[in-house]
């Protein structure tokens, strides 16, 4: 299983990585991107099985990234955000996102939301 974490905060990428490991998911490799634009570049060169993306990022935000990614790939994309605004969540899902995780999250939260993608 290869996971791409998209977040402009290096700390948040580490927090998500730690959460995934603590949740006990079997992960072969974690790839990282600092914004949607970088994520598109990664996806042009690498195949991943799951994408976790922040909302607010410079250059290309999470919502635009979802729309761009859906033009070429169908890899599951789960949004990670601080605010649980239903409008934003629904807009992302309408644009092709598969789910949503709200910070703060626990390993149990991650298991519950992401378990289905890890088989």
């Amino acid at each position: 299983m290869r996971v791409l974490i998209v977040d402009d905060s290096s700390v948040m990428r580490k927090i998500v990585t730690r959460g995934l490991r603590q949740a006990g998911f079997k992960i072969d490799e974690i790839l990282e991107a600092g914004d949607g634009q970088q994520a598109m570049e990664v996806l042009g060169q690498e195949q991943v099985d799951l994408i976790l993306s922040d909302w607010n990022m410079p250059n290309m935000d999470g919502l635009t990234f979802v729309k761009e990614a859906r033009k070429s790939i169908q890899t599951p994309i789960v949004m990670v955000t601080t605010e649980g605004g239903e409008g934003k969540v629904q807009e992302a899902i309408n644009s092709g996102a598969n789910g949503h995780i709200k910070k703060p999250f626990t390993p149990e939260t991650l298991k519950g939301t992401l378990g289905k993608y890890f088989g």
Partner: peptide, 21 residues
């Protein structure tokens, strides 16, 4: 230093987001 700056910012971000929610 980047970790500390990012981490403190993220803490503030999460605390405010939690307050709003």
């Amino acid at each position: 230093t980047e970790d500390l700056l990012d981490g403190v910012g993220e803490l503030a971000n999460m605390i405010c987001g939690g307050m709003k929610a």
